[in-house]
């Protein structure tokens, strides 16, 4: 009889909300048969339910619906691809315009090599200019392409001092014509 009048104290009431099974058997028995304590517990739980409902009701909703997985990865991959491409371009840029001493040496070596190639090419061009035909053909022709006799050159390009200038005329007159 007495046990029915001893209601749950504050701590027991809180424990009943945390987990009723953790109450001592006697207290649990009292709770299961006491409408007063049941009402106190129900009231407390209702408050906590209200807390949950209010946090939910007073929260905003996300402005956007969840993005499908495929879209998420597409969104993630696109900037990743662009960043990767930009990185490749950056590395190429650094490679071509690298200011470091090691690559300066490389560039010097490269320049020397190019100069050697150029001078070799010039020599080859000169050879081709002067000996356009192979030696065999030059032997057949009986002359050397690299050599013209002074007489022949004087005929084609007369020297200045051999020219006679007529008075009042700037036009040169060839000596050879005057003789003839």
């Amino acid at each position: 009889m007495k046990s029915k009048t001893i209601h749950l104290d504050e701590d027991q009431l809180i424990w009943s909300v945390v987990d009723e099974n953790d109450l001592a058997p006697a207290v649990r028995n009292h709770l299961s048969s006491c409408p007063v304590c049941q009402e106190r517990k129900r009231h407390f739980e209702q408050e906590l339910n209200n807390l949950g409902n209010m946090t939910k009701a007073f929260s905003p909703l996300p402005r956007e619906k969840p993005v499908p997985v495929v879209q998420i990865f597409r969104n993630w991959l696109r900037p990743a691809f662009v960043s990767g491409f930009a990185l490749v371009l950056l590395i190429m840029g650094i490679w071509w315009s690298s200011p470091f001493p090691v690559s300066q040496e490389n560039r010097m070596t490269q320049a020397v090599g190019e100069m050697e190639d150029d001078s070799q090419l010039v020599v080859e061009i000169r050879v081709v200019e002067e000996y356009a035909l192979p030696d065999l053909y030059m032997d057949i022709a009986g002359e050397s392409y690299g050599y013209f006799g002074d007489e022949f050159l004087e005929f084609v390009v007369p020297l200045e001092e051999n020219q006679i200038r007529s008075t009042g005329s700037a036009r040169p007159v060839r000596l050879i014509h005057l003789i003839s």
């Binding site: 407390f44 408050e47 807390l51 209010m54």
Partner: peptide, 18 residues
């Protein structure tokens, strides 16, 4: 929960619910 029971502000507000 013990502290919640001793906090009158939120405690009172919840009595009305949503």
């Amino acid at each position: 929960l013990k502290k919640f029971r001793q906090t009158p502000g939120l405690h009172d507000l919840l009595k009305g619910g949503v």
